[in-house]
């Protein structure tokens, strides 16, 4: 290792300790009972309550259902959302058409209106549509995410116009250009988008809380919130549930971050 390498790695490692420390605390907390978690001095070593916390979560609180619901909902809206957002981003970045600036501006401006004031009317829509307690209620409003459209628009600006023209001259239709030329070179940005869409849906709390009505339909954050009481909260179970909710996202991230390998685009432009 060069001196620079040692220095940089050490520096990044120190930062990583700060980033991960709360997570380590969380992992240790999953092995303790509520009483032990908040004792002073804090427990720095694992305890023995992990299996009790875990079985409490799954038998008393239907946490298995919550994980299933969250996985189905998040995976579905991620897959659909990636296509929908990148198609829109592509249109905004690579086409000149009447209303482009206006439509993009309206979508972006809608993002600035806090969700707390649009929650009630959105709930009314779901009541009218008869979708309370259903997957569509959770998925459909979370597909056209302004953030995702914006992300893809910015990323698509990096795609060279020559690449598209070359494909069109070769006789490729617009759909083929998008699916077979644009999307493959966008893999890093699509991975980032997928991570963020999944995360956004996975962590969404207030809106699912309002439209879900029975414990078997709860998503993970709603199930975790139901563990909170006034004079009694099982923090052992609560933190174990939080830990379990972190793991799938980290696995997904670990899997997708491989796409961030330098020079992906360089190769394809050369061809």
């Amino acid at each position: 290792m060069t001196r620079l390498s040692v220095f940089l790695t050490t520096f990044i490692a120190l930062g990583a300790v700060i980033m991960v420390a709360p997570f380590v605390w969380l992992v240790i907390a999953t092995t303790h009972t509520t009483g032990e978690i908040f004792s002073t001095p804090p427990h720095l070593l694992p305890g023995t309550a992990f299996w009790d916390n875990l079985s409490g979560l799954f038998t008393e609180n239907r946490f298995g259902d919550a994980i299933r619901n969250s996985v189905v909902v998040s995976a579905t809206s991620t897959v659909l959302g990636v296509f929908i957002c990148s198609a829109a981003g592509y249109a905004f970045a690579k086409f000149d058409f009447p209303g482009r600036t206006l439509i993009f501006g309206v979508i972006l401006a809608s993002m600035t209106l806090p969700s707390q004031v649009t929650l009630v009317p959105l709930f009314q829509i779901m009541v009218s549509a008869g979708w309370l307690n259903s997957y569509p209620a959770l998925i459909l409003p979370n597909l056209a995410v302004p953030f995702g459209i914006f992300l893809m628009r910015q990323a698509m600006q990096g795609v060279p116009d020559e690449l598209l023209q070359a494909a069109r001259i070769d006789g490729a239709g617009e759909a083929r250009v998008f699916f077979q030329v644009v999307l493959p070179v966008m893999r890093p940005a699509l991975s980032a988008l997928a991570i963020f869409l999944f995360l956004g849906q996975w962590n969404d709390f207030v809106y699912p809380l309002t439209v879900l009505r029975t414990a078997d339909a709860y998503t993970v954050p709603v199930a975790l919130a139901s563990l909170q009481g006034v004079s009694s909260t099982d923090y052992g179970q609560l933190l174990t549930g939080t830990f379990l909710s972190v793991v799938p996202v980290l696995i997904l991230f670990l899997f997708l971050q491989r796409q961030f390998v330098a020079g992906l685009l360089a190769g394809s432009v050369k061809q």
């Binding site: 709930f123 009314q124 809380l209 309002t210 414990a215 919130a225 139901s226």
Partner: peptide, 19 residues
């Protein structure tokens, strides 16, 4: 249905405000 507290208030308020 165990909704949790304080979650129950945001949930109830939304329904009330929706009519």
């Amino acid at each position: 249905e165990n909704v949790g507290n304080p979650a129950i208030y945001d949930k109830t308020t939304t329904g009330m405000a929706a009519g």
